[in-house]
Simulated assay, not measured.
Amino acid sequence: MKLRRLKKPLGKEIVKHKYLYLLVLPTIIFFVVFAYVPMYGVILAFKDFDYSLGIFGSPWNDFQNFRDVLGNPDFVNAFKNTLFISFGRLIIEFPVPIVLALLLNEMFNGKLRKVYQTVFTFPHFISWVVLSGIVTTILSDQGLLNELLQVFGFGKNNVLTEGNSFTALLFISNIWKEAGWSSIIYLAAIAGINPELYEAASIDGAGRFQQIKSITWPALKGTAAILLILAVGGIMNGGFDQIFNLYNSAVYNRADILDTFVYRSAFTDATGFGFSTTVGLLKSVINCLLLFSANFVVTHVFKEEGLY
């Protein structure tokens, strides 16, 4: 005979763990105010917005905003650029923090390892506004690099105005800025590995590479899988802060992503809130589909723990 498990009333559970619920209350309030309450504005994508009538009073426009967006050549170009840059970040940038964490973990000198970790982590705290100013000062037409190249008799570089070079700059600068910070979570996972496993492997004759392959990497796979799912789920974002502060009209055809396109369409081209909301809605739907798809692949194909 199976014993029926008695469920405690929710109210009593909340009272019992009131301090834990109190700790998470600010986070709940944050997401309610800034994530859920504004969601009613999504209906702007389906309306011809009129300031005098408000959001709910404005007339429906029979999906005209979607036809305007999908028929806009600048949107199509920005969509392609977003996919190219985001998948590039996934392929090029995502493995770097994992490799960095593995390399730091292999350092025997603990003090030196902390120094390197601090050096690699520090760029994360520099805003893209400041960093873009530094990059522009160095790489611009009259910048430091071009001045040095001219002194030694070489031609000028055109990194900031040439599409392929600018795309490479996006990847390299973002790796330099974020790889150290992103490696922290992998280092935390490595710190949870029992040192006796390494000692046993060493006694059995396993080298450092074999220990990484058989001990360290299996401990990191679950963490990497979760972060990969989240990265795929945000693939349509592209990196607005970095691109907005670095790009210029000369590289619009290669660097203009959906977020920068929305910014220009809303504040420069004055296309209206309905147009911008439609682009944002399409982004969110695609990100949601990619998130569920990535979670399905990780859980059913690679047999790793997913988000659900």
Rank of each mutant, 00 (worst) to 15 (best):
A35I: 05
N174H: 09
I175W: 11
G88T: 10
V24C: 13
G280F: 04
A225Q: 00
D68R: 10
F120Q: 05
S276Q: 01
K114H: 15
F79C: 08
V42R: 06
V251N: 07
E147L: 15
N295P: 01
Y21A: 12
Q211C: 14
N253L: 09
L10C: 10
H300M: 06
K156W: 10
M1S: 13
L246H: 08
W60Y: 11
F66S: 01
F34K: 07
L290D: 03
L25A: 13
F46D: 02
L20R: 14
H300D: 00
V262W: 05
S182A: 15
Q64W: 10
R4S: 14
H300A: 05
E305V: 02
K213M: 06
G163Q: 14
S276A: 10
Q242L: 03
F49Y: 15
K18L: 07
V69M: 04
A225N: 01
V298W: 00
W176H: 01
F63N: 11
S165N: 07
Y198A: 01
I98N: 07
F261A: 03
V298D: 02
F49I: 10
P38G: 07
L10P: 05
A266R: 10
P123Q: 08
F171S: 06
I134L: 05
I215W: 03
T216I: 11
N248C: 05
G41Y: 06
E304L: 14
S182E: 14
I257G: 03
L23R: 09
T118E: 06
N174A: 12
T82I: 04
N174M: 13
A219W: 13
P26I: 10
F120W: 10
Y198L: 04
F94D: 04
L307C: 01
L169G: 05
F87W: 15
A200K: 03
R264W: 01
S86P: 06
A225P: 01
E199R: 12
Y252T: 08
A168Y: 13
I215L: 04
S249C: 12
N72D: 14
L102V: 12
E106A: 09
S265Q: 09
A231F: 13
F267N: 06
E196A: 13
N146I: 09
A168V: 14
G272P: 06
D259G: 07
K177E: 03
F87Q: 06
M107P: 01
G239D: 05
P59C: 09
V76Q: 15
I184F: 08
F166P: 03
G57N: 02
F66L: 11
I92Y: 04
L10M: 15
F302Q: 00
I243Q: 00
F154Q: 12
S183Y: 10
L102T: 07
A266S: 13
I92H: 01
I243C: 01
F84S: 02
A200T: 07
S140V: 05
F56M: 08
I91C: 02
P9C: 13
Y308D: 00
L139S: 00
N105E: 04
L230N: 09
T82N: 03
A206M: 11
T223R: 00
N287Y: 06
A266K: 02
L307I: 04
